[in-house]
Lab assay of single mutants.
Amino acid sequence: PDEFRDPLMDTLMTDPVRLPSGTIMDRSIILRHLLNSPTDPFNRQTLTESMLEPVPELKEQIQAWMREKQN
Rank of each mutant, 00 (worst) to 15 (best):
P1C: 03
P1V: 01
P1Q: 01
D2Y: 06
D2Q: 15
E3P: 07
E3G: 02
E3F: 04
E3Q: 07
R5Y: 09
R5S: 06
R5I: 14
R5A: 05
D6V: 01
D6R: 00
D6P: 03
D6L: 00
D6M: 00
P7D: 07
P7S: 06
P7W: 02
P7M: 03
L8C: 08
L8D: 03
L8I: 14
M9L: 11
M9D: 12
M9Q: 12
D10N: 10
D10V: 02
T11C: 10
L12V: 15
L12I: 14
L12T: 00
L12K: 09
L12Y: 05
M13S: 03
M13F: 05
T14F: 11
D15Y: 01
D15F: 01
P16V: 02
P16M: 01
V17S: 08
R18S: 06
L19E: 03
L19G: 01
L19V: 03
S21M: 02
G22T: 02
G22A: 01
T23Y: 11
T23S: 09
T23K: 15
I24W: 00
I24F: 03
D26N: 03
R27W: 00
S28F: 04
S28L: 03
S28Y: 05
I29T: 12
I30C: 00
L31P: 01
L31W: 09
L31K: 10
R32M: 14
H33L: 06
H33R: 08
H33V: 03
L34F: 10
L34K: 07
L34E: 05
L34N: 05
L35G: 14
N36G: 07
N36H: 14
N36Q: 12
N36P: 00
S37M: 04
S37Y: 06
S37K: 01
P38L: 07
T39Q: 11
D40Q: 02
D40F: 04
P41T: 00
P41I: 07
F42N: 00
N43M: 05
R44K: 14
R44Q: 15
R44S: 15
T46F: 15
E49H: 01
E49F: 03
E49W: 06
E49D: 15
S50H: 13
S50D: 12
S50P: 11
S50T: 13
M51P: 02
M51I: 06
P54S: 07
P54G: 09
V55A: 06
V55F: 04
V55R: 02
P56Q: 07
P56E: 11
E57Q: 13
L58M: 07
L58S: 06
K59T: 06
K59Q: 10
Q61A: 13
Q61E: 11
Q63G: 11
Q63R: 11
Q63P: 04
A64L: 10
A64K: 11
W65C: 06
W65N: 07
M66F: 12
M66P: 03
M66H: 15
M66V: 14
R67K: 14
E68D: 11
E68Q: 14
K69I: 15
N71C: 08
